[in-house]
Amino acid sequence: MIVAEHLTKKYGEHTAVNDLSFTVRPGLVTGFLGPNGAGKSTTMRMLVGLDIPTGGLITVNGKEYRDLPDPLRHVGVMLDAKAVHPGRSAYHHLLAVAQTHRLPRSRVQEVLEMVGLASVARKRAGGFSLGMGQRLGVATALLGDPEVLVLDEPVNGLDPDGVLWIRRLLSSLAAEGRTVFLSSHLMSELSLIAEDLVIIGQGKLLMAGSVEEFLGEAGPRRVQVVSPDAGALAERLQGRGCTITSTDRTTLEIQGVDAAEIGSVAAEHGLVLYELSSRSLSLEEAFMELTQTAVEYSTQEPAR
């Protein structure tokens, strides 16, 4: 279990992470979401002791990472795939990491096979493609057979094959009962595997909870109505505490009342409906809605 309590990191004047508190439940895949620059990497770096928090605390199973006598057996980390000496072979890179914890050499071979790098293990890591580098990063994270895996943007820059590979691997690791904590700025990527979400923007917590809770909180369902009498229907719905936007003369987007009520109102007043459909927000839309106010470097929308 990963617990952040009032975690804060300041770089001079700039606050990268601001009073962040959340819990990553054991045995689940938790997506760590936020726009670029939201403080995801900084939080993960503090988790494994690379950055020292300005305030607050982040712990793994109740202990700070630095205080673990055998950190690699608790937490496997991939922060950036290129944390490798380009002149060193994949095998020796892994061996040097394994030796710090006195893990057996056979374990190096095992993880190399697990990620499909056994055939290039003796080649210099500098010649690896992005995808191979990513695999080596995952192999490093798996060395100590940890119960918690922390991955920062694992699919960034991967080709579709690589994305599929990571997705399958993470699913199988989660199925083994491991805790997976992975960051992304793409909701679409996480929505396929994450059960829990921690969403931050500008270093602050926006939401933490399960995917269902997130969708429930993100906003009411919308109803789309197509009617030749759109104007009249909109008038009849006034005063029911709903917001109505019309996209053209016949189409309405209605929030705040459900489809059944709209249908009843239309029937009551003899208004013709061509279409009456309700839909919930997709994860992507909900995420955009939640974070649009918390984007650090937003492009200026042209005035309408």
């Binding site: 061996l95 030796q99 914890h101 006195r102 893990l103």
Partner: peptide, 23 residues
């Protein structure tokens, strides 16, 4: 991995030895 695996001084020495000769 064996349950005895943990950070030791000897392990760190071996690791640095590997790092030196592998570049």
């Amino acid at each position: 991995p064996t349950s005895t695996a943990r950070i030791t001084a000897w392990g760190l020495l071996q690791s640095e030895w590997t790092k030196l000769w592998s570049v």
